[in-house]
Design a protein around this nucleic acid. Sequence first.
DNA 1: CGATTTTGACCAGCGC
DNA 2: GCGCTGGTCAAAATCG
Length: 331
Amino acid sequence: MAGGQERELYNFLFHDELSPFFSQLKPAATDSAGDRHGLNQLEPPPFLSFTDVLRGGPMADYGAVARALGLSAPPPDVLGSGGTRPAKELMVDVGNAGNSLTSPGGGGVTNPATPNSSISSSSTEAAGDEDGEKWKKDQLKQEEEVEKQQAKGDEEGGEHKSKKVNPPRKKGDKRPREPRFAFVTKSEVDNLEDGYRWRKYGQKAVKNSPYPRSYYRCTTQKCSVKKRVERSYLNPTIVITTYEGKHTHQCPATGRGSTHLFPPSPALSFSQDFVMQQIMQQVNGNNMQAGSINPNLYLPPPLQQMQFQDYGLLQDMIPSFSNDDNQPRDI
DNA sequence: CGATTTTGACCAGCGC
DNA sequence: GCGCTGGTCAAAATCG
């Protein structure tokens, strides 16, 4: 991967789509006076461990987020501080993080004790209990429908090749969203190497943006993880990668002697795997013993994370991400 | 030749 | 109801 060392990575945790995230950026935010909202403003508070972050830690409330982002009261030393950060991360739970791909009771690879699970509950709550209930109902309903459809399909003798036959959903049946995680990455390349293999299945123009959004699916059979990749139109060096779903397999990269010493533990969600990989890259770059790092206990200083739990909040926050002026290129 | 990408069309959800 | 938009499909094109 070309941009491995040349990027700043921002991971966010928030609800709902990323699209409005950048599409609503105001160009005006890029003027020089707006520097205080630049990416370099994203100086999170001290150290957050993954556990902290994923459990809805210190960044969970708007005030903290806003402060950290310099929306209202930026820390005086945020600009250009920490000159040698190879990467910054903010992790965004982009949606139904509470609904693990592995269905409740489905066992699967989900470890109920994973930080991810913790996020989900808190973020789901943040999203609103009603929605949560609704989703559960929808899912149950959909499962029933799917079963019916499958039974019917079997009787009728298989797949007919009309479009849109795959999702046998009824009108009004909302498709349940997978847990989603967005990573905002400063990178030259769109398709960031995350160890998995992806096949592009679509591309759409993004409203208010000259840059298209690409849709990828994990090429591994039976793995339904998807990701979307788009660029910020205000800051083309920023790539927003949104992962949806959970890998049901090990990371191919780790299977063939990748430099990441992290085992693709099924206990970690794919997103965490990814974050871990990013961390390990950073860690390795800092002459640290990757194998000695416990992801739950240690977050390398170069990686600083924030968690946002409210989509509306994100929208408010976005302008602070839009301005790339005088962004520190601390590579 | 299989895998992947491109691209236009289709569909669903949502706001007005 | 209509139009807009996001997401997906699938045939064709391209790549390795």
